[in-house]
Design a protein around this nucleic acid. Structure first.
Lengths: 216, 216
DNA sequence: TAAAATTTTTAGATTTATCTAAATTTAAAA
DNA sequence: TTTTAAATTTAGATAAATCTAAAAATTTTA
């Protein structure tokens, strides 16, 4: 059994692995809001427990065991987010902090029953896929809205930025999951995107467009 | 803000206060599965934070601030128990350990929304009252089944023992909350109680009868 | 490729919650 | 009321997770 802190390290390493593998000490330190020295200490500990492969000065990779643990935490986090939004009427920008706590509750019975209660959701309120109890993800294919070309259409199915200000912004613009959009123009000057949604025109910055995920 | 551990101490002190006030160091140590020396250390800390009034060698009492904190934890514990039983189909003997973890989740929004989602329950699955957000309990009047006299009737509305073996035993006998019972005989020899439930006769030990709470 | 900059690790300290063993206080018994 | 027993506290140690400051390794740059 892992401690709350160990679980957090594993989760962060898991998320950072997607971007770069192996994961650097400083990257972890920044994400976890701690000092590099503390990270080094913890990596040694996780290595002793065979949850990560750690080479001094080189970085870490999750072992199979570590990866399964991490995915299980991600599973719990996302299921709780669905619960908060679907059942307790939380907004999609309000769920993260609470789910950060709920993801560490240990009972497997709880997780399986929650999954059932929520009718086995495949994605969380931000469109992120929810792994099953064996750690398998349904493979969803997303492309960034910023990669679409003029006149292309697609459905908003996810976001790659979870901060409250960003999500509130999208909400205000009506850019929520499931909405159908069409690119009407891409502005040369600043790369901003003009799109059609609910028959209305809308201009969003390139920065925003990069964090909206589309499926066709 | 209090730590997980501090919250547990406050909760235990709160429960023990009902039995004896002030609460003794050893009583806490036993409940919390730790050593008396550790309890002393924590009592000093809680005292510094003005959550308890602590007099060396005499014991502790919760301050108003400490009491409110404790009651809030009890509130969360019981609401989560209702959730587990009502929504996730947990049995009444399966909820305790999980609720022990869930009770420490911090968000007040979560608690109020959960309360609403559960339609403001007044009691938990064991019949224990759920305080409102101000810490007020509805005053329910219970008497022990063992205090009833021959031919008296009543409704099972609570239990004063929460262990899984005890609850499973009651379940098997059909002695669940809401059931109407009538005392048909009290056996002189061992104090055991014969009762009528669902038109069937049943004999339970005095020990069991003591932990069943009745309202008329 | 040698110097400079960056990243990472080590060493030693701190905080929180715990422990054991010994000392002290209080309560109970003779 | 003195002795004994029980409960409680103190003192000093330990484990987990963190920190700062300095040393070491790696990467970048000139």
């Amino acid at each position: 059994m892992q401690s709350y802190t160990e679980e957090n390290y594993l989760k962060i390493i898991y998320h950072l692995s997607v971007i770069s593998n192996p994961v650097q000490t400083n990257a972890i330190a920044e994400k976890i809001q701690t000092k590099a020295a503390s990270v080094t200490d913890m990596l040694k500990k996780l290595s002793d427990k065979e949850l990560v492969d750690y080479i001094k000065y080189q970085g870490v990779t999750l072992t199979e065991k570590g990866k399964l643990t991490a995915i299980n935490i991600v599973r719990k986090h996302r299921l709780w987010e669905v619960f908060l939004v679907e059942k307790l009427n939380f907004k999609w920008d309000e769920v993260h902090e609470v789910a950060e706590e709920l993801e560490h509750i240990k009972s497997t019975l709880l997780v399986e029953r929650l999954d059932e209660f929520l009718e086995f959701p495949k994605v969380d309120p931000h469109g992120d896929p929810i792994p099953d109890q064996h750690g398998n993800f349904a493979n969803l294919s997303f492309i960034k809205l910023s990669k679409l070309k003029t006149n292309e259409k697609g459905t908003i199915t996810g976001v790659s930025e979870h901060s409250s200000p960003f999500l509130k912004h999208l909400e205000k613009l009506g850019l929520t999951l499931g909405k159908r959009v069409e690119i009407s123009e891409i502005i040369d000057f600043d790369g901003s995107v003009e799109l059609l949604i609910d028959d209305k025109k809308l201009n969003i910055s390139r920065e925003v467009a990069k964090h909206i995920l589309i499926s066709k």
